[in-house]
């Protein structure tokens, strides 16, 4: 076998940045950023060390959760969270439908389109916790503020995806219905609704799931639910109760996730 004039070295050609100078510049930039960023983290190691014992207690609390001694608070918080989740999803989806239709370019007049799209943008840009702070300030502490928060957040989520869905419907079907001389309402009912309905149901179930998770968070700023109970438990250093609450949250989320994926399969 001849070993002719073939090269004996080979380097993998760069895949993304072809220019060597750019590559070096970006690599140096990343290193400088990491040094600065890590340097900006001030860690009080004595405090962390002291905290390890607490961390251990928390892990023990998680492994040996105490459901009983705070059961009244926990069940109260859980009921608030669950009811809040359901009502806010129903109301949020109900409001999302007209807004979603209004935010679909192919169905709504221009000015309605812009109004609906800005409602969606505001709802999506603000986080649940921030919205909750405002609603708590306006409506007082408790699950009602949480309900409003989650409904508002649901609008941004469902209406956006619904509008995008409607914009992507099969134009041929809409055309066919329009050609029969159908009114706008009939168009929505016959051409749009059948195409987006399965997706809408799926999204609503998915949002139900998200709303429960979020309901556990907004309690921290006073909007009721199991988050408030958790916050209290941690403030009192009752890690075994906190562990129990976290396990309940994980269990409910798991059940919700499995049943919603099952339901979605069943409905489609």
């Amino acid at each position: 076998m001849t070993t002719g004039p073939y090269p004996t070295t080979w380097r993998r050609p760069p895949q993304i940045l072809k220019d060597l100078r750019w590559r070096i510049a970006i690599q140096i930039g990343i290193v400088i950023y990491l040094v600065l960023a890590i340097g900006s983290v001030e860690v009080n190691w004595a405090r962390v060390y002291a905290g390890l014992e607490r961390g251990q207690r928390f892990v023990m609390g998680f492994l040996q959760p105490d459901f009983t001694s705070r059961w009244r608070d926990i069940s109260q918080g859980l009921i608030e969270s669950l009811t809040m989740t359901l009502t806010s999803t129903v109301v949020g989806v109900a409001i999302s439908i007209p807004i979603g239709i209004g935010a679909a370019r192919n169905l709504a007049p221009r000015w309605i389109y812009y109004i609906c799209r800005s409602i969606i943008a505001v709802s999506r840009a603000l986080q649940e916790v921030i919205i909750a702070i405002f609603f708590v300030a306006m409506f007082g502490f408790g699950p009602f503020a949480g309900f409003l928060t989650l409904s508002f957040a649901t609008i941004g989520f469902i209406a956006k995806l619904l509008a995008d869905d409607i914009e992507e419907i099969d134009e041929a079907q809409a055309e066919a219905v329009r050609a029969t001389g159908a009114s706008w309402g009939q168009l929505v009912n016959y051409a749009v609704q059948p195409q987006v309905m399965p997706r809408l149901i799926g999204l609503s179930l998915y949002r139900l799931d998200i709303n429960f998770r979020e309901s556990a968070v907004i309690g921290i700023v006073g909007a009721g639910g199991i988050g408030a109970t958790l916050n209290t438990a941690i403030d009192r250093y009752e890690y075994d109760s906190a562990g129990a609450i976290l396990l309940i949250i994980i269990a409910v989320v798991m059940v919700a996730e499995y049943s919603s994926s099952y339901l979605r399969k069943f409905l489609q």
Partner: peptide, 17 residues
Amino acid sequence: LRKYPPADIQRAYQLLD
């Protein structure tokens, strides 16, 4: 690291040829 021995690389070129 894609640092194959020179003989392997030479052979790979030869086979590609």
